[in-house]
């Protein structure tokens, strides 16, 4: 497990480097879901460099597509894309579009970016796996602000209606969205009770503890006949003190000065 935590820290540095180089991006929401994506890609999912182009494996949909930095960082850490390619993020001609494009880059299981749509796609994939008697699981990551989209609840209704126990939704519950705190913009808590009333199995955990996240996702495999949602309690901007819990770091670039400060906090190049 220590290894995955090290990878997560490398991913955080990748994210800071990418946004600094692009001079735009989504630092807060990318940093908040690092430990979730690291747990999925390096602990839970049956995905690696050999299986990446196969359809016979677990699937991941980054419904909160604006955190594409985190997905690209995981793909680079897995060796699926060259590490230096990360610096092309958001630039003209790049495979690493501002929001993920499945046809441009290997390892992206669904194009995303328009909020609220990924869970529905996950429902479709999970139904297909059931029809084909495939044991693979489908993981969808959404933001808590994203759960304001009505389509999330249409999808939630259909996932439990069809008893999709091969579908897991993870909510990156960082409490912030573009315009401020979720509770101020459009309060949607308690999310767990809402999913429970929609017929889901509900787990909650510390969204920055990789061993706990991994344990919860493994436990979800034992739940039958209903989908599972994991409400992962996270801190927006996690790992960079001046970005943490600050709505101003939702979507913006990183200055040279802030880049140096952030990299120093994350251990700089010493951690390589």
């Amino acid at each position: 497990m220590r290894q995955t935590e090290k990878i997560a820290n490398e991913m955080r540095k990748d994210i800071i480097e990418m946004i600094h180089a692009a001079n735009s991006g989504h630092p807060g929401g990318s940093l908040s879901c690092v430990d979730i994506i690291a747990s999925l890609f390096f602990e839970v999912m049956d995905i690696d460099i050999d299986s990446i182009n196969s359809t016979d494996r677990d699937r991941f949909i980054l419904s909160k597509g604006h955190a594409s930095e985190t997905l690209y960082a995981a793909l680079a850490e897995m060796g699926i894309i060259p590490h230096e390619e990360l610096l092309t993020f958001r630039k003209f001609g790049t495979r690493l579009q501002g929001h993920p494009n499945m046809n441009h880059c290997p390892g992206i299981d669904m194009s995303s970016g328009s909020l609220g749509q990924g869970l529905s796609v996950g429902v479709g994939m999970a139904i297909a796996n059931k029809m084909n008697n495939k044991p693979y699981r489908v993981y969808v990551l959404v933001g808590d602000g994203e759960c304001q989209e009505g389509m999330i609840w249409e999808a939630a209704m259909s996932a439990s209606h069809y008893g999709l126990d091969n579908l897991v939704l993870i909510v990156d519950h960082n409490g912030l969205q573009s315009d401020g705190f979720v509770r101020d913009v459009m309060n949607n808590s308690p999310l767990g009770k809402k999913f429970d009333s929609f017929g889901w199995n509900v787990f909650g955990c510390d969204g920055h503890d990789i061993s706990i996240i991994t344990q919860a996702l493994k436990m979800a495999k034992t739940v039958k006949d209903k989908p599972t949602v994991l409400i992962a309690e996270t801190v927006k901007g996690k790992g960079v003190s001046f970005m943490e819990n600050n709505p101003n770091w939702h979507g913006r670039g990183i200055s040279d000065e802030d880049y140096i400060r952030a990299m120093k906090e994350l251990g700089g190049d010493d951690c390589e």
Partner: peptide, 28 residues
């Protein structure tokens, strides 16, 4: 009936589910 999915009165979700089925090789 095993190949007919009624998604209820929720067209947005229906289209998203169709997309997921197509990614997985179905012809929705």
């Amino acid at each position: 009936p095993s190949r007919h999915f009624n998604m209820g009165i929720a067209e947005a979700n229906m289209i998203g589910v169709a997309a997921g089925l197509a990614v997985s090789g179905k012809i929705p």
